[in-house]
Write a protein that binds this DNA or RNA. Structure first.
Length: 425
RNA sequence: GGAGGGAUGGCCGAGCGGUUUAAGGCGACGGUUUCGAAAACCGUUGUGUCCUCACGGGCACCGUAGGUUCGAAUCCUACUCCCUCCGCCA
């Protein structure tokens, strides 16, 4: 949530910054300013009325204790009280309207963010193949580790079903990623709930604007999480932390659920765009001075997984027109898929600054005693299904076997490759 | 799902509709004392928001949201969460 004080002081600057996202929000901002002015005028009147009410009611109390008659004052106060009710209604309504508008405004892009994505660097070697590498869904079918037909019977299109060594590979990836982040990068592992309240979704910025994206339960109105970022960031809701408790580093494996409304027909094959997928997510809660540095570190921690798995990837700095709703600055990691001959996003690493912290009221106390909003950062570390696909493609052999990257072998019962069932005796 | 009990400041814990600007205690911080410390004593001790250049002042907040009343931590309604018991259950 954007600070309303910024809108009061510098609305044209805010409008210009948000325009970098490719959206003209000047009408919305002007609307908020008008509502805010009306709200403050009414608030002033309401508080004046309350002050009067408080003092007179006090006097009535004194008179009554003395056994004196206060009926005249009471009669007068009935009118004042009625007026208070009216104005309170107005105040509440404009306050709610302002809040509703603020919740729909995306975060302001960081000053360093420009239009258009930039490739910062490429890492790892794109291997040469003397055969045609199959896309992972074709290889996966031959290897009998992926079965989208069966998944479709159960759940409809765009759901994954892994079997045999496929399921083992997915499990191995999850454990491997978690171990690296926990043991090497100092994260606290969390296993959060998959179903959360709407307020929890609002807290990270997924609601109210993108509610179409999420699955909700009919009877209880709970939302299936689209990413573990949602429960992890909300862990510090309504807290005032001390500065030396920061940074908090949370890592979680969860399945993620997305309706992908509006992207029907995109990436219909394979593990790239499913309604359900697995992800290891990293969340950092930092103080305001540290978040920039933490963002770079978080990126490095996510990259580490790709390096250890020996997958070729590139690092993108996202342009202002391509960033998510809550992010002020975002790096994407894209891995090369030789079967699809495409770069595919496997991690999105964002600094949200205080945008989410305002929504969840998460603060810390500085040594000087000031109470400040925390900064929240999140990164995939990494998207498991897409890494599964990347391994099946990058480590494919001409016999359509899949070599297991060395770092993963101990998580795969020491196995060195996944073999075609028709070649196994 | 059923029957009860509960939610008050950082923590514990009082609180008859009007001397409560939320008692008292603990903790924390500052001071006195001391060579230093402990103890004792004295003082301070939440959050938000609005007005003001500022000094300062107002208003709100006792789980949440409504209601009754001149006046609500206190009475009423709904909801959330926690505890106890019963039922069901991986």
């Amino acid at each position: 949530m954007i600070d309303i004080n910024e809108i009061r002081k510098n609305s044209s600057g805010i409008i210009a910054s948000l325009a970098k996202r490719g959206e003209d929000l000047s009408d919305k901002i002007e609307k908020i300013k008008k509502l805010d002015e009306a709200w403050r005028t009414d608030l002033l009147e309401m508080e004046e009325i309350r002050r009067e009410k408080n003092t007179v009611s006090d006097e009535i109390g004194k008179l009554k204790r003395n056994g004196s008659d206060a009926s005249e004052m009471i009669e007068q106060m009935q009118k004042v009280s009625a007026r208070e009710k009216e104005i309170k209604k107005k105040v509440d309504e404009s306050r709610a309207a302002i809040n509703q508008e603020l919740l729909l405004l995306p975060n302001i892009p960081d000053d360093s963010v420009t239009a258009g994505n930039k490739v910062l660097r490429e890492q790892g070697e794109q291997k040469k193949y003397d055969f045609e590498v199959l896309p992972h869904w074709e290889a996966g079918k031959i290897l009998n580790i992926l079965d989208f037909e069966k998944a479709a019977v159960l759940s409809g299109s765009q759901f994954p079903l892994l079997c045999g060594d496929g399921a083992l590979l997915e499990r191995a990836l999850i454990n491997f990623m978690l171990d690296v982040h926990i043991e090497k990068h100092g994260y606290l592992e969390i296993m959060p709930p998959y179903l959360v309240r709407e307020e929890t979704m609002i807290g990270t910025g997924k609601f109210p604007k993108f509610s179409e994206e999420s699955y909700m339960t009919v009877k209880d109105g709970l939302c299936l999480i689209p990413t573990a970022e949602v429960p992890l960031v909300n862990l510090v809701r309504d807290k005032i932390l001390s500065k030396d408790e920061l940074p908090l580093k949370y890592a979680a494996f969860t399945s993620c659920f997305r309706r992908e409304a509006g992207s029907h027909g995109l990436d219909t094959k394979g593990l790239i765009r499913n309604h359900q997928f697995n992800k290891v997510e990293l969340v950092n809660i930092t103080n305001q001075e540290e978040s920039g540095r933490a963002h770079e570190q978080l990126l490095a921690e996510s990259e580490e997984i790709l390096k250890l798995l020996q997958l070729p990837y590139r690092v993108l700095e996202l342009g202002s027109d391509d960033m998510g709703f809550a992010a002020a600055k975002t790096y994407d990691l894209e891995v090369w898929m030789p079967g699809e001959k495409k770069w595919r996003e496997v991690s999105s690493c964002s600094n949200c600054l205080d945008f989410q912290a305002r929504r969840i009221n998460a603060r810390y106390r500085s040594p000087e005693g000031d109470i400040l909003f925390v900064h929240t950062l999140n990164s995939s570390g990494l998207a498991v299904g897409r890494i599964f696909a990347a391994i099946v493609e990058n480590f494919q052999t001409d016999e359509i076997n899949v070599k297991i990257p060395e770092a993963l072998q101990s998580y795969m019962k020491g196995r060195k490759r996944i073999k075609r069932p028709d070649t196994v005796k």
